[in-house]
Design a protein around this nucleic acid. Sequence first.
DNA 1: AAGCTAATTATACACTTGCATAATTAAGCC
DNA 2: GGCTTAATTATGCAAGTGTATAATTAGCTT
Lengths: 210, 210
Amino acid sequence: MQEERRKFTRESADERKRALINATLELVADKGVRGATVRGIAERAQVTQGLIRHYFSSKEDLITAAFEYHMTQMTDQTFAPAASVTDSARARLRVFVKSSLEPPVVDPRSIALWAGFLNKVQHDAQMKATHERTYVYFRDQLEALIRAALEEAGIAAAPERLYQLATACNALIDGLWMEGGALPEAFAPGELPQIGLTSVGAIIGLPLEP
Amino acid sequence: MQEERRKFTRESADERKRALINATLELVADKGVRGATVRGIAERAQVTQGLIRHYFSSKEDLITAAFEYHMTQMTDQTFAPAASVTDSARARLRVFVKSSLEPPVVDPRSIALWAGFLNKVQHDAQMKATHERTYVYFRDQLEALIRAALEEAGIAAAPERLYQLATACNALIDGLWMEGGALPEAFAPGELPQIGLTSVGAIIGLPLEP
DNA sequence: AAGCTAATTATACACTTGCATAATTAAGCC
DNA sequence: GGCTTAATTATGCAAGTGTATAATTAGCTT
């Protein structure tokens, strides 16, 4: 009987918040925001529900924090691969398109999270702002990459045309991302990046394929 | 006191079902499937909640019916405009792309519904089947239009290439649809169809703009 | 006009939800 | 080693959830 088990162990605030946020994201992906109950989240994070209120002032607060975390993570995953490429502007654009259309960016969970959060995004001002900021950032990065690649190839493009090219390529990538995530079995591995590279190349008038 | 008001009026089964389904779609778009409660739906349809059980065996059943109805309606809205065009294959493709990127297809409500239903689609086999069928149908129609337009222009394309072109154009349209619905104020009226036509033309190598 | 039947409402129930508040207890400090 | 305090659990509550069942009643038939 000297086996006196601790009833719980204390963790740092960051550790606990991270665990709660991860549990929240899993549940939002699986059941949506309303299906992610405080009891369910607590269970997945291996704590009791009362603890959530200790770290977050409300469920709303936790959801918002989880959303911000997720968006940051998505952005990082998308931009990290291209940032390390220094060969040429064309190569950088190539890597950017490719990594946007591969796991872990393309993933059923990502789509589920996007869909799960959309309601809140449309109603909550702060989340709406975060969402728009992320979209604009992505689009602008893509525009910069396209501009550099075209300049490098000696192709001139007016700002308005550049804007349209970036919007179109952004939509193409988003569409492939969505379809790859929503219908995973419909595409062979490597198919999405290949179609993406060919099509972005066609849109901007500069072949990207190796 | 001779003003004896009826406490309720009887309606045909079809009328009531339609009202309940419309109320369901409104609520799903606004709050998601879990936010669309039977009480909320009944209120919007101007009936008491018990009536839902009289026409649908469960909430699940009502949700499924609403989803089927919505998908059919979306498909009809998308394909009706192009069906009446007989000028040329190119004109038909042009109208198809254009009408896919205008209201009422492009609409915040459409996106909200798509997002609201996605969870169920990923978990419910029947809804998953409906979703995939709609996607494949859309893609195949687009592929047929592209093939006809290319043939008409005397451009040969292997089946595999045709498949890739259709997948890419489909993704582009879906991406623009998504962005137009999720960020309505980010695009001027007519901007999405214009970008769509230019880009589809670039992808398939056959200009579509008037 | 009376009766019948299905459409509709009314009521109830067990369960879940987010949140608040009180009761424990782990772990650093002297 | 005892004290202290914040982290954590335990308990409770009012409101909302889907569903089942009983009670009404509109509108048709004769």
